[in-house]
Amino acid sequence: MIGSVHFVPNLTIGAPVIKSLRKHTKAYLDCHLMVTNPIDYVEPLGDAGASGFTFHVEVSKENWQQIIQEIKSKGMRPGVALRPGTPIEEVYPLVESENPVEMVLVMTVEPGFGGQKFMPEMMAKVENLRKRYPSLDIEVDGGLGPSTIEMAASAGANCIVAGSSVFGSPEPAQVILHMRKAVDGAQHGN
């Protein structure tokens, strides 16, 4: 979460950290911005080497087309996120436009703080998206771990964000492996 005017109250990683990380990895560096003015961060994050840039639909109703265009012009992959209380229909225009987002992030907790409890009722949004857009990347963030991954994967999520369940585990590699297998199995019908 980056920015000076925040959609959520805490700040995590900014462009200087992305720039430092990029020097040491070719990994996909995905930036989820929970800020009021995401367009202000497109250029700095693109210049720093970010791979993906996900902004919130709730703060971009007036300029989402411009945001998507600028994200792509900086060589990043655009995504849109929505909070639990936001109807899924609000992202349809961004997925269906001539210049669409390439990923939708369904938040299964209120954005801003780690360690929150997974909201299973958000899986209806994931199922809806998967049915409507079979090839869309659908990401789920919030409360994901060994006890909730099957629910997200079977609903149609193919991108998973996990923090507390991985970093708080005595065996993080095992948690990652378990979650990866769940998503791969759901995608391949196993």
Rank of each mutant, 00 (worst) to 15 (best):
S169N: 07
E121W: 14
G79D: 08
M76H: 05
V166M: 11
P120E: 12
K131D: 01
G168P: 02
M179C: 08
M123K: 10
G79V: 06
V101T: 13
D184Q: 14
G52A: 14
V175W: 13
G114W: 12
P38R: 05
S97N: 10
K26M: 04
Q69R: 15
P78M: 10
L45N: 15
N37D: 15
H32L: 13
S135K: 12
V106C: 08
M151V: 07
D141L: 10
Y41M: 09
E150W: 04
I88P: 02
D141N: 11
H32Q: 14
A15F: 13
R77K: 15
P111H: 12
E89K: 13
V101M: 11
D141V: 10
K26E: 14
V80H: 01
T148E: 11
Q116K: 04
I176S: 04
A124G: 07
L33K: 00
G156N: 00
D137K: 10
D137E: 12
M107F: 07
N63L: 07
M151A: 12
V59F: 02
G142L: 05
T108M: 05
P44V: 00
S164Y: 09
C31A: 14
P38M: 09
G112K: 02
L29E: 03
F167C: 00
G185R: 12
S135L: 06
E58Y: 11
G115V: 11
Y133H: 05
L94C: 08
F167S: 03
K19R: 15
V126H: 06
E102V: 12
L129G: 03
R77S: 15
R130D: 04
E43F: 02
P93S: 09
P84W: 09
C31W: 01
Q69C: 06
V17N: 02
L136K: 03
V57R: 10
F55T: 11
V166A: 11
K181R: 15
